[in-house]
């Protein structure tokens, strides 16, 4: 019997496909998310929209709060640690979090290095803006990749840019000659063996999810049709005027992301989505997606 192998880590990511992972800040929200059909919850003290509004240093959530949420729900519980902060990750692993998000939403602890995730028994998800970033994270041991998007804005434009960027680069890799792959690996700044695998298989070696700015059922469907295998919804649910029906609508929109009748049906009758901020109006130093390399 073996635990914590890469196969076991990716296995949980496989089980989360076709689902919605919802950000929650307390037990009540976690229960609403689970009752609505969320496949997992992300436990954090402040959702990205509030982190943006309040400023200051954003750290790993209090383990007490994460454990309370874990007791309240039966679905997998994720939690975030700061980029490069392996001690926060060690604590999250110790308390039995099911998935760790090494996240640009929190203030980075290391501006050069990400966590060496292969040393952990629990799986990690990491954000990316492009294929090179995705493959570096996989090289470090990430078992799931998600777009960074621009968290806490309710603006889908960056998530679309990142997903299109990754899928276009994968398509291009699959057209390359073997002798061109080393030079491409150099340009991508990614491990050669993983570049070669992606070129041969035409996809990432781990599940590829979308995050950062998803606020409506239509946003969720858009990301799935662009190639995402599941979605994270951060501020989009509990910053809207109707969290419970919106959470349920999101779950239905993911299962039936290509059924436009269903999408029309679940979009009707929802109150206002989160107000949001246009990502293009943010100063460069306000963009969370720029955190990490």
């Amino acid at each position: 019997m073996k635990k914590g192998t890469f196969e076991v880590k990716v296995g949980l990511a496989e089980m989360l496909k076709g689902g919605v992972i919802m950000d929650v800040t307390n037990v009540d929200q976690a229960k609403i998310a689970e009752d609505a059909g969320a496949s997992s919850v992300m436990a954090l003290e402040r959702i990205p929209a509030d982190i943006r509004a309040h400023g200051g240093i954003s750290r790993m959530s209090n383990p007490e709060m994460i454990l309370k949420i874990r007791e309240a729900v039966s679905i997998p519980v994720m939690a975030k640690c700061r980029i490069g902060h392996f001690a926060e990750a060690q604590i999250l692993q110790e308390i039995g979090v099911d998935f760790i998000d090494e996240s640009e939403v929190l203030t980075p602890a290391d501006e050069e290095n990400h966590i060496w995730k292969q040393d952990f028994n629990v799986p990690f998800v990491c954000g990316c803006r492009n294929l090179g970033e995705a493959l570096r994270r996989i090289g470090e041991g990430a078992a799931m990749i998600r777009t960074k998007g621009e968290p806490g804005t309710g603006d889908i434009v960056e998530a679309v840019r990142h997903m299109r960027g990754v899928t276009a680069e994968i398509r291009r890799l699959s057209t390359l000659d073997k002798s061109e792959l080393m030079a491409t690996a150099k340009i991508l700044g990614a491990p050669f063996a993983i570049v070669e695998w992606v070129a041969q298989n035409g996809k990432l070696p781990v599940p590829n999810f979308a995050a950062g700015g998803i606020a409506t059922p239509a946003d969720a469907s858009l990301m799935m049709q662009l190639g995402a295998e599941a979605v994270f919804v951060g501020s989009g649910i509990f910053k809207s005027d109707d969290p419970k029906p919106r959470a349920e609508a999101m779950v239905k929109a993911i299962t039936h992301y290509q059924d436009f009748a269903v999408l029309a049906e679940v979009s009707r009758g929802l109150k206002d989505a989160m107000v949001g901020i246009s990502a293009s109006t943010l100063d460069e130093n306000e963009k969370m997606a720029k955190r990490g390399w």
Binding site: M1, K2, E7, V77, V97, V122
Partner: peptide, 12 residues
């Protein structure tokens, strides 16, 4: 979830 959280997941 009888075996516990993800860190107890295994292959055999």
């Amino acid at each position: 979830n009888a075996y516990g959280s993800q860190k107890y997941s295994f292959v055999d």
